[in-house]
Simulated scan of single mutants.
Amino acid sequence: MDTRYPALITKALEGGFCVRFVDLDEAFTEGDSMEEALFNAAEVLTLTLEGRLSEGIEVPPPSRSVRGARYIAPDAKTQGVLLLRAARGERSLAELARALETSWPQAKRLEDPHHWPSLKTLDRAVRVLGKRLVLSVE
Rank of each mutant, 00 (worst) to 15 (best):
Arg52Ser: 04
Met34Thr: 07
Ala94Arg: 14
Arg91Asp: 06
Thr102His: 02
Arg67Glu: 15
Pro74Lys: 11
Lys77Gly: 05
Ile72Asn: 03
Pro74Asn: 12
Leu100Asn: 01
Gly68Asn: 14
Pro74Ser: 11
Phe39Ser: 13
Leu84Asp: 04
Glu35Tyr: 08
Thr102Gln: 11
Pro62Val: 01
Ser33Thr: 15
Pro60Leu: 05
Gly56Pro: 00
Phe39Thr: 15
Tyr71Asp: 11
Ala86Arg: 15
Arg88Met: 13
Ala37Val: 09
Thr48Ala: 12
Arg88Gln: 12
Asp32Trp: 01
Arg64Tyr: 03
Gln106Met: 09
Gly31Thr: 12
Tyr71Ile: 07
Asp32Leu: 13
Leu100Lys: 04
Gly51Tyr: 00
Tyr71Val: 04
Phe39Asp: 13
Gly68Lys: 10
Leu45Gln: 06
Glu101Pro: 00
Ser92Val: 07
Val66Glu: 01
Gly56Ala: 01
Ala42Cys: 13
Leu93Gly: 03
Gln79Thr: 09
Ser54Gln: 11
Thr48Tyr: 06
Arg91Thr: 01
Pro105His: 09
Asn40Pro: 00
Arg64Gly: 08
Thr46Asp: 09
Ser103Cys: 11
Val66His: 05
Glu101Ile: 00
Leu93Gln: 13
Ala97Arg: 04
Pro105Gln: 08
Pro105Trp: 03
Arg64His: 11
Thr48Met: 05
Ala87Phe: 07
Ala97Asp: 11
Thr78Ser: 03
Tyr71Ala: 12
Thr48Glu: 13
Leu49Cys: 08
Ile72Pro: 03
Ser65Trp: 05
Gln106Ile: 02
Tyr71Cys: 09
Glu90Ile: 06
Arg98Lys: 08
Pro74Thr: 12
Asn40Met: 15
Ala86Tyr: 11
Met34Leu: 15
Thr46Met: 08
Pro74Met: 12
Glu35Ile: 13
Phe39Met: 11
Pro62Lys: 03
Leu100Trp: 02
Leu82Phe: 05
Ile57Met: 03
Leu53Ala: 04
Val81Pro: 09
Leu82Asn: 03
Ser33Lys: 10
Ala37Ser: 12
Val66Met: 02
Arg52Phe: 03
Thr102Phe: 02
Glu50Tyr: 02
Phe39Ala: 14
Glu58Ile: 00
Ala99Ile: 00
Ser103Pro: 10
Tyr71Phe: 10
Leu84Glu: 07
Leu49Thr: 04
Thr78Glu: 04
Arg64Asn: 10
Glu90Thr: 15
Leu96Arg: 07
